[in-house]
Design a protein around this nucleic acid. Structure first.
Lengths: 202, 202
DNA sequence: ATTTCCTTACTGAATGGTAAGTAAAATATT
DNA sequence: AATATTTTACTTACCATTCAGTAAGGAAAT
């Protein structure tokens, strides 16, 4: 097992708890217990709960922005949008705690999110703006609000993860219909990508 | 002013608070203050916080299911999908507290949502399943996971409302680009509708 | 001798929920 | 019609718990 500092251990457990339970329902006492330390040990490493949250979420948003920028530079606009979507989708797969954290932030108007993350998020969106603008110049995309496109990409993918318990409950109440088919996430990414591209094209 | 029972007054203020602050950060004391009563008065009308929440959310999900069913019976599959989307969008406009409540429920895996709401939600989704199936039979839609389509409709529209503060902060960090254009919600509904239909067609 | 990295023990504030009592309205009884 | 009784719709006062955050101290490494 890789050697990991206690500070990083705290961050890992915190990330899981913030993702599973949300900011309010995450207690520092329970995180401490999971790390097999005591609560003030957390306060030794982090000023307060908000700072710990920041240490959890900032690297995630930064990593996302970097992957997006890296993977959406080349190709025509269609290809770049496809890469934007698949990069985001694969990021959600490799960062399984991110979906719920991001979904909560969208739902509560980014109340807990630090400015640094907003900065990273705006890098991501700027990239999408550039791609859409390139698509217009190429004459393949009609003019569209980048904000809506961003929402059409990000929120369905995120919600695929977070709404799983909700879907399971709905499936119980609708047994005789075809809702119960649980889709595979890789397929979802592809399928969403196809539809968004179709929707964007003139 | 229409006469309103104290019980309904409590529900109205609760709805606003649950929407604005979320379940955890909504304190019954603060609701009581807004209603100009005391906390135990709330407990006279409602067994506990969960029951109050139920009284707030159930009518919303029921009203949504009824409007959806009512407005998506007639016409061809394309028309019915358009009506599904516009009915949902207009519901969000006329029920301004619903977006945040629903978004939070999706984000936290429906932890607070009562079974009765799940029932209403499954009515809504069954209707979409029917429409998509009709579209396949008509030969105009390709086979698709209804669940993904539901997510593609519901989550972007909801997030348009809840992410407004987030967008404003992003706009501050991206002043020199074109992100700042704040789209009009009625236009968003139309635009989303067009794109989803394009994406669904064979 | 000092800094690092923790521990035990604690405080204060917020909050869900309850016990007990009360004024007014509705209902039953004389 | 007048009076007694019960029910409705609350209030004041309080309890129990949870939780963010702190004070003070200690062992080990530097």
């Amino acid at each position: 097992m890789a050697k990991i500092s206690k500070k990083e251990l705290i961050i890992e457990h915190s990330r899981k708890s913030f993702s599973k339970n949300g900011y309010e329902l995450t207690s520092l006492e329970s995180i401490a217990k999971e790390c097999e330390i005591t609560k003030p040990a957390i306060y030794y490493h982090f000023k307060d709960k908000a700072t710990l949250y920041k240490a959890v979420v900032c690297p995630e948003f930064t990593a996302l922005a970097e992957k997006i920028e890296k993977n959406t530079q080349d190709g025509d606009a269609v290809k770049r949008v496809q890469n934007y979507i698949s990069t985001f989708g694969n990021f959600l797969i490799s960062n399984p705690d991110f979906s719920a954290i991001f979904a909560r932030e969208i739902a509560n108007g980014s109340a807990n999110i630090p400015d640094e993350c907003i900065n990273q998020l705006s890098r991501t969106i700027k990239q999408l703006v550039n791609i859409l603008y390139a698509g217009e110049s190429e004459g393949v995309f009609s003019k569209e609000s980048p904000f809506l496109i961003q929402m059409m990409i990000v929120t369905p993918l995120i919600s695929c993860h977070t709404s799983k318990p909700l879907r399971e409950r709905v499936a119980l109440h609708a047994q005789n219909s075809k809702i119960s088919l649980e889709p595979n996430f890789a397929n979802i990414i592809d399928s969403l990508s196809t539809k968004i591209i179709k929707g964007l094209k003139c």
